[in-house]
Amino acid sequence: MRKLLLAVAGVVLAGQAWAADYKIMAPAAPGGGWDQTARSMQTALQDEKISSSVQVTNVPGAGGTIGLAQFVNQANGDPSQLIVGGYVMVGAILTNDSPVSLDQVTPIARLTGEYEAIVVPASSDITTMADLVAKLKADPGSVSWAGGSAGGTDHITAGLVAKAVGVDPSKINYIAYSGGGEALAAILGSQVTAGISGYSEFASQIEAGTLRLLGVSSDARLSGIDAPTFKEGGVDVSIQNWRMVAAAPGLSPEQTAAVNTDIEKMVKSATWQKTLADKGWADTYLAGDEFRAQLAKDIAATSVILKDIGLVK
């Protein structure tokens, strides 16, 4: 019996010894979506015994491109280093003329996604997407949009909406706010015509009746959200603000496979699935070659719309 217990203990200790240690960079300030994603990964990897130790660091600035540059330059060949990013980073790389790009990291997986929502103050005379489109067509500059950083998902969505209804995207009157709270205050105060962001940013105000939800950017109606899609409102646009994890440049196929295996275990774990449910994040897990192909498509499409908007030459 004693030999059996010692053997079992040896297996457990060996498993713990082999568990990878990770350092995850959130290229943003604490509290935001990327930081929340990194810290949720930290919890799941450790609680599920996938990793023995996970550290999270924050390197904010320039839509994630400052952190990305540091990661590319300092993490080369190190399989313990990961970085969280997302669709906002794709636009930031282009608009900031970043010296580094996502081609220089090792994409691992898309993890979560959130659809965009367009809202107006409850007191607005705009009640449908069709009303908003009519105003936009009549005078693009008269429709002011409140959203996040210039070149980010919100800005891109506004440009796509304009383009889809035949309005020159460079004519849109987009007002970029550094934080969701500032944008929300401007919308609620009727300082702008409409607001655009991830649905969760507006959920409590929509439920309270202070904001009117005109539409969401999904292909089909979302469960639990009483709103038409953009397409139902006559605007042929579908877009999702996704978040991903990438590994360091210069990894061997074996090292990349090991990281992929750990992330797949994390995504399928009870801890991660509970986090998604608690935070209202959609599980959009996509890994390997499929994710790399989707990433390439998103980068190409984003480049086109940012040129249309006039943010990229």
Results as ranks from 00 to 15, higher is better:
289 D>G: 05
22 Y>K: 13
41 M>Q: 12
35 D>M: 05
252 S>Y: 12
4 L>R: 12
52 S>F: 08
166 G>W: 11
84 V>A: 08
220 A>G: 07
148 G>R: 07
30 P>R: 12
248 A>T: 08
285 Y>P: 05
9 A>Y: 04
276 L>R: 07
43 T>C: 06
114 E>N: 10
152 G>H: 01
89 M>V: 06
88 V>E: 13
251 L>Y: 09
10 G>Q: 12
110 R>C: 01
8 V>R: 13
73 N>C: 04
5 L>Y: 12
199 Y>H: 07
238 S>Y: 00
274 K>P: 14
281 W>M: 04
16 Q>H: 13
159 G>P: 07
91 G>M: 00
31 G>Y: 02
44 A>D: 05
309 I>E: 08
171 K>Y: 05
141 G>K: 14
69 A>L: 13
75 A>M: 14
45 L>N: 10
69 A>Q: 15
215 G>K: 03
263 I>K: 11
241 N>E: 00
200 S>D: 07
167 V>C: 11
199 Y>P: 08
146 A>K: 06
270 A>N: 13
38 A>I: 05
182 E>L: 15
88 V>K: 15
309 I>R: 12
157 T>L: 02
231 K>P: 03
118 I>D: 01
58 N>D: 09
108 I>A: 01
65 T>Q: 01
58 N>T: 05
278 D>P: 10
161 V>M: 15
30 P>Y: 07
106 T>Q: 11
103 D>L: 11
124 S>Y: 00
258 A>Q: 14
219 D>P: 04
54 V>N: 09
261 T>H: 14
238 S>A: 13
193 T>I: 05
184 L>G: 04
163 K>S: 14
138 A>H: 06
226 D>E: 11
186 A>F: 09
250 G>R: 11
234 G>H: 05
100 V>R: 15
135 K>Y: 02
153 T>M: 10
230 F>M: 04
293 A>S: 14
300 A>Q: 12
186 A>T: 06
143 V>H: 06
127 T>D: 13
292 R>K: 15
10 G>L: 09
6 L>P: 12
123 S>Q: 07
128 T>L: 00
288 G>K: 11
223 S>D: 15
66 I>G: 03
194 A>S: 10
147 G>N: 03
17 A>V: 11
5 L>Q: 15
267 V>Q: 14
37 T>C: 09
177 Y>F: 15
208 A>W: 05
16 Q>T: 12
79 P>L: 07
62 A>F: 05
63 G>F: 02
127 T>L: 07
148 G>F: 00
71 F>Y: 12
283 D>K: 03
215 G>Y: 00
95 T>P: 12
124 S>C: 03
126 I>T: 04
188 L>R: 13
172 I>M: 09
85 G>I: 02
231 K>T: 10
252 S>R: 13
293 A>F: 10
266 M>G: 00
187 I>H: 03
301 A>Y: 01
274 K>F: 05
255 Q>Y: 07
186 A>S: 14
290 E>Q: 14
288 G>P: 15
134 A>N: 10
28 A>M: 10
26 A>I: 04
171 K>Q: 12
298 D>A: 04
149 S>G: 11
121 P>Y: 00
228 P>Y: 03
191 Q>W: 06
